[in-house]
Amino acid sequence: MLEARDISFAYGRAAPVLSGVSLGVGRGEIVGLSGPSGCGKSTLARLLAGYLTSRSGAVLVDGAAPAKGWSPVQYVHQAAYLSVDPRWRIGAILDEAGPVDEALRNQLGVSRRWFERYPHEISGGELQRVVLLRALGPRTRYLVADEVSAMLDPITQVEVWQALQARAGAGLGILAISHGDALLERVATRRLHLEAGRLLPVSGSATKAIGNAGSPQCGKWPLEPANLPA
């Protein structure tokens, strides 16, 4: 179980982003986390993955505080190009995490032909799959996936999530953060909603309604393009 126990966090002296949030992700579970933009989803993700340290409360991995060495909790976020050394080739980037799992490489659609290239020479979606492959080493027990498929086209998104679901079937716990209600409804085994620093459970039928509404209603937005200079 990857647990956050009553954690709080604030950037500098600003108002706290999270206060007293508790959350658990079990092995083999895909927990879908949604919430409005800027509500602290990514902060929570960084806290869980050890990229940030909470002001109070604790993050526990299988009941213990994280030890040194390969972290059993790996974090992948939307901006893949920030997660890799821009001076390394793709092959070296993958090697840093140990031998490449060939089966997973094929599932994620990572081509060996990219290995000789630099990160800026492949597309954002391709790099995202490289970062996922790197994060899913044999010692990874939990994955915090923050908008991992937001950069992917629909077909690749399906492929990536099929690979992740297969991993979850083999015991990987995943916290899937996304704005896409329809996506979370497809992949998550359980759903949570973060709003104003609090976590709320989401019932299936309610999210179905949001997800299927789909099309944006254009008329009602408080926008006045007429204010623009002509």
Binding site: G69, W70, S71, V73, A79, L82, S83, V84
Partner: peptide
Amino acid sequence: QADFIIAARRMGR
């Protein structure tokens, strides 16, 4: 502070 450095730390480097 760079993400790829933190990522390397989390890979046990």
